[in-house]
């Protein structure tokens, strides 16, 4: 060790005094912005209604209980539709997402300059539109019912699955691909032997995760006429049948719980 202790500086700070000051000014500006936004937001609030809110909530709550359990058998068909919409929609999305993911991944795309941007655009387009909006458009095109819901779920899910899958493809170990390529294997064989084994766990996890999300989404798609539990919910809301609404809520909650449990089990088994 060269030098005596005295020759080294004894003070060390992460930021300069100027940097420290700027940081505090930044925080102050953020607080000021928050206060300003709060003022703008509440310009049109009628505080009379807000004060009234607890009473209103209690009133609505009292109308929702007791739930009309006799309505339950009539909900079995819509429940079946909802599960079908989610499952078929997810399957359709998987079929479309796999090629898109391979076209979008930097290491498997045929052309990084032309094909990849198109695939990425497709992914972004699919992801930027909510399933409910897709359903709204598709009900207008295909007509009300389950098929519109299936397609809506599929179109929304393609982007999600393709995005996560292409990220998984880009993260694979290149040396395994190199080794299989070096044996003289064709491109299809390289995908089958070097890429697929590496992305399989991620792929299975992604699909089950999306199915789980789709069960939740398809439960409300009926609100815009795409069939399933949402349709029943809208019917009940229209006639102010609050005890039936409660039953539907409970059913949706149970369905989501079951799907969450199933997807957790499947992911646990694979990874």
């Amino acid at each position: 060790m060269a030098g005596t202790p005295a020759s080294f500086p004894q003070a060390w700070r992460k930021r300069t005094t100027r940097g420290e000051l700027l940081l505090w000014v930044g925080w102050l500006a953020l607080v000021a912005l928050f206060v300003f936004c709060w003022e703008v937001m509440n310009e049109n609030t009628m505080w009379f209604f807000v004060v009234d809110a607890p009473a209103q909530a209690l009133d609505l709550g009292s109308r929702m209980v007791p739930p009309r359990w006799s309505y339950l058998p009539a909900l079995m068909k819509p429940l079946w539709d909802t599960i079908n919409m989610a499952t078929l929609g997810t399957l359709l999305a998987i079929v479309m997402a796999i090629p898109v993911a391979f076209l979008a991944a930097r290491n498997t795309t045929p052309s990084e300059r032309f094909v990849r941007p198109v695939a990425l655009l497709g992914i972004v387009a699919s992801r930027s539109i909510n399933a409910l909006i897709w359903a709204l458009l598709l009900v207008a095109i295909i007509g009300p019912g389950v098929p519109a819901g299936v397609v809506a779920i599929a179109l929304r899910s393609v982007g999600f699955i393709a995005k996560l899958l292409y990220e998984a493809i880009e993260e694979i170990d290149a040396s395994q691909v190199e080794a299989v390529t070096a044996t003289g294997a064709s491109s299809a064989q390289v995908i089958d032997y070097a890429i697929v084994p590496q992305i399989l766990p991620a792929f299975a996890g992604i699909c089950v995760f999306r199915w789980d999300i789709n069960i939740r989404e398809s439960a409300v798609l009926g609100l815009v006429g795409a069939g399933g539990l949402g349709l029943a919910l809208q019917d009940s809301l229209n006639v102010l049948a609050w005890p039936q609404v409660t039953v539907i809520f409970v059913l949706i909650l149970l369905t989501v719980l079951v799907s969450e449990w199933v997807s957790a089990r499947v992911r646990h088994a694979i990874i």
């Binding site: 395994q176 080794a179 064709s186 032997y193």
Partner: peptide, 18 residues
């Protein structure tokens, strides 16, 4: 550079892919 998730036999047979 073995394909980690494949079996030993599959890895050896991958030498025959060509």
């Amino acid at each position: 550079a073995l394909v980690e998730r494949l079996t030993v036999m599959e890895n050896v047979l991958s030498g025959r892919l060509g």
